[in-house]
Design a protein around this nucleic acid. Structure first.
Lengths: 345, 345
DNA sequence: ATTCTGAGGGCAATCGATTGCGCCAATCTA
DNA sequence: TAGATTGGCGCAATCGATTGCCCTCAGAAT
């Protein structure tokens, strides 16, 4: 059995409360220096390790943060998680990681589970559809921060990126290169991130005087398979797109597979701007022009926000932080006329 | 405040113990069906959620697994973590994820921390150097499973891959293509995984009648930077390697950067076999011939082992599971003579 | 009529740490 | 010198759930 406060107290001939006060440097009650030193010595001798479970139970504070994300194996989330874990660790918190696989039922279960386990706060990349659980958290006064995705009809602490303007800029960039048939491979339409990118995309088209074409908006999930299927569909259109904006680390992988199968040359026959955070992009057959995220900044800011709320429970203000995506120009986009020429060679 | 057993008991006019027995279907004491139904109804009405913290404290069982890995943002570990989390969830366990950044001090701290928090078991990708903490775990009878890395002088539950034979085979494959100057970009030498791969590499050379050249064994950490520096060094040798075996998802990224800078053509001027689990490898400028891991299988088996030990605390046997890596032939290796010819064009 | 049995459920200790309150003795103040 | 203060520490309740043991009462057995 591990040493407890009682063991130390017994050995020292004092009361456990005294030991507790000494070990946690509680100043509300005075303890003589002699006793203090004696207790500390005994604690060290017995290699006392506080039972954090008992503490947590008593104090109603677990020093634990719950992280709910769709998929830790997606480099966007694993990058953010890494940063969140580091920041949490530095602040003395542990991190419980939960994958929802974009399944709202699982998300709800996880939230309840984590609440029952008494996490001090939650960071959530919600799969949307439903914000009841968040209202519930608020009612229970359990701090939480949304990351990447949020609800427009529901103000909460949140960290996300400049989805709309980055998509808008991407379209403009492509239009400057003379592209007009620009497809958007979006991912899950329910996600706020995606809706904003779609908005940026549409407004971009409008700003460039390009008519919308619903056929060019494709995809319904974030999987590589969906990216693959959607790209095949796009490339099979009577009038296929000359440029592609893809949204999601896995989607572009599926898209590349389809492009390879169709034997389409990048960027000559198709320009691509991809939202992705994978590190391999510079070394691809056609190095991708990408929009990536400041993952470590996002994670850190999320933890900062959460800790602030944990430590200032009375402060009901919410903060929304928008971080800037990083546009990396590489070789996967080129001017349309050039492309056509190449095509004719 | 959340509803407690007491609340239900009070409302039903019974003792909390009765409620507890009903809710957890404890059969050691008989409860009338009428009471049972009444209590269940009240529990539902009050939306009773057990305080898992209190349960954990009382039962000395947290339904939590600790996962200690070097870096969740490395796709090898994020893939395994994903699988571990899913298996844990299915078994009713939560997962606390900890990144050590290959720092043994941090690993020690984390182990102690998780033990103090009462995790039911641990899965550890140790950064090696030291196994004292594992002996300590064993003494405290806390179940744990090593993953990817283990200690040869210390039998424990472990899941790892066929490092030695895969490296051996890689060398043979390269030798069949007439390569004799085969470099090994290893990563952290302390890691058992690396030592085994090195052994396989050396035995492969021996089997092929190739003399060892210490110059061709490079690298000292798993970072992209180290991969970059080590590759530059290799490429600057008086007699540079004609083939490269890289070990680690990040290392190959650095290597590719160096190769690009040196303007070396793959595979003509350099053949590469890379240990990597990244999904982009098929789409690279030169699609990489890779050795990858069955991540999901590894995670699942680790959890299975751990749960077995958790549920059979008296069973002191340990199990070592070796999984097979996946060799994917792509375009980054070619016959040396061909290469030389290409070089002369 | 008395004893026995088992169904049904209450009692209270326990897990380990924390903390408001109270107590005693020594020292200080007036 | 009596009263006040304070340093130093103990007491016991508490957090919520669990569980071994005990109690009661009705019906069965003798």
């Amino acid at each position: 059995m591990a040493t407890t406060l009682r063991d130390i107290a017994r050995k020292a001939g004092v009361h456990p409360s005294t030991v507790s006060r000494i070990l946690h440097n509680n100043q509300t009650v005075k303890i003589s220096d002699a006793t203090r030193k004696r207790i500390l010595a005994i604690a060290k001798e017995l290699d006392y390790q506080p039972n954090e479970l008992a503490r947590a139970f008593r104090l109603r504070k677990t020093q634990t943060i719950g992280l709910i994300i769709p998929d830790i194996s997606n480099s966007f989330f694993s990058g953010i998680s890494r940063s969140i874990e580091m920041s949490s660790y530095n602040a003395g918190y542990n991190l419980v990681v939960c994958n929802t696989n974009e399944n709202i039922e699982k998300e709800l279960k996880y939230v309840r589970n984590l609440v029952n386990r008494g996490v001090d706060g939650l960071i959530i990349a919600t799969c949307q559809n439903n914000e009841k659980h968040l209202l519930d958290l608020r009612e229970k006064k359990i701090p939480f921060v949304l990351i990447d995705r949020y609800f427009s009809n529901f103000k909460a602490n949140a960290v996300f990126s400049d989805n709309k303007s980055s998509a808008f800029d991407a379209v403009k960039t492509l239009h400057k290169l003379k592209h007009e048939r620009i497809a958007f491979l979006r991912g899950r339409p329910e996600i706020s991130t995606i809706q904003l990118r779609l908005q940026g995309y549409l407004e971009g088209l409008a700003a460039c005087g390009i008519a919308q074409d619903p056929e060019l908006i494709a995809g319904k999930s974030f999987t590589a398979e969906d990216g693959y299927e959607a790209t095949k569909m796009l490339l099979s259109l009577a009038s296929p797109p000359t440029a592609l904006l893809t949204s999601g680390n896995r989607i572009i992988i599926g898209a590349l597979k389809a492009i390879k199968e169709f034997n389409i040359k990048l960027p000559d026959e198709l320009s691509i701007i991809a939202y992705t955070d994978d590190l391999f992009t510079p070394f691809l057959a056609c190095p991708l022009t990408t929009i990536s995220h400041p993952l470590s900044e996002m994670g850190q800011k999320a933890v900062d926000l959460l800790l602030h709320e944990i430590n200032n429970t009375n402060d009901n203000a919410t903060t929304q932080i928008e971080v800037k995506t990083i546009f990396s120009m590489r070789e996967s986009i080129c001017e349309l006329t050039t492309c056509r020429k190449t095509e004719n060679v």
